[in-house]
Design a protein around this nucleic acid. Structure first.
Lengths: 195, 195
DNA sequence: ATCTCCATGTAACTCGTTACATGATTTT
DNA sequence: AAAATCATGTAACGAGTTACATGGAGAT
């Protein structure tokens, strides 16, 4: 375990910092955090609500966020969390630490193993992937357009600039992905009708 | 659990298919598989040896690979695994299934939260990331050059073509990453010496 | 003498996913 | 009338990481 912190604050999972990064912008409920970390929305980090609630409890226990409780729609109270100065400090410290790079990519792994399967099967997988990436790219471009519409991106050091920077990378990633998938489809198609 | 398989074969983790994809090329020991899935080498999937051994045991138990045992350097026997026809079929079936897309990116998450930290701290993180990506890109380009040297990539349907296709994506990914990191560094630097 | 590489595994723990559970309000 | 949305949580399990453990061969 890479625990370089003091004894009273055990290390938090990366998800905790994703949550703190959202809370640094505005107070949110666990439900809202869960929504923002859902699959097509969460640009760089995903989590289900069942993972969010226990981590939120730990964040609160360490004094990194405070909750204000009020009546909720269900049998339990609705709790809206705000980040504390200690939470901001913790987030700042984490941001300044070097990121660990580990990547897992199922599509790439499938392509790596694709030569064991017939080309039509791989083409099906690739065409589906192409659709998904096209959709994701459009989602991102829509966000980008809305962002430009309500005043362009600010100067570095603002949340708006950070949003724009991450979104920019998301768009470039999807474009690169799409180009590669289309290249592969073209290669496989020309090879296929040579038979 | 998304178990659509028959009762006698419980679902295997994705790592099992990464291992089968390696075994489909040539017989390997658990140690060699672990090496190939190590951080800078594993292009799209990473795992430590402690994860590999139990999964290999499950692969063997399901008859997807066979081991030939011989004297090893340590107290235990050295076991070299070969894929079986059943293993090839399982791999083929998995390749044809749609990949689940979930991505986690620590650097992107850090940039998303970067506005809470001073610009010099973020620049340190970004410059370190730039070095890592430059190194990774060089590694990939080296592999690419060696690949071209011993006869260019084959036609689709071969392992060599699959290698080239995945490597190509790796190179494009690193290039895109590098360009983005450099753009960000430039933006932050010009903003910094306006103070 | 110590370190690294080869080679195998186990143990303890944390993280992540799916499913279960409750219940009011709004939409179809 | 049924389904989706808001809102909270727990339980069970599987995946992933770090550390422990063993030991021969070769390099520094």
């Amino acid at each position: 375990v890479t625990d370089e912190s003091s004894s009273n604050s055990p290390t938090l999972p990366t998800l905790a910092y994703a949550i703190l990064a959202l809370l640094a912008r505005q107070p949110l409920t666990g439900y809202e955090i869960g929504r923002q970390l859902q699959d097509p929305i969460g640009l760089f980090w995903q989590a289900g609500h069942s993972q969010v609630y226990p981590v939120l409890a730990r964040i609160e226990a360490q004094g990194l966020a405070l909750a204000t409780a009020g009546p909720g729609p269900g049998p339990r109270q609705k709790r809206r969390y705000s980040i504390t100065p200690a939470g901001l400090t913790a987030l700042r410290t984490w941001v300044e630490a070097p990121p660990g790079r580990r990547g897992r990519d199922e599509l790439l792994l499938r392509v790596f193993a694709s030569w064991v399967a017939p080309p039509e099967a791989i083409l099906r997988v690739l065409r589906e992937a192409e659709g998904l990436h096209r959709g994701q790219l459009e989602t991102y471009l829509g966000r980008w357009a809305r962002m430009q519409a309500r005043g362009g991106p600010d100067a570095p050091g603002t949340a708006d600039f950070a949003d724009a920077a991450t979104l920019r990378r998301g768009i470039e990633y999807e474009r690169g992905r799409l180009a590669w998938v289309r290249w592969l489809i073209a290669r496989l198609e020309t090879a296929a009708h040579l038979d």
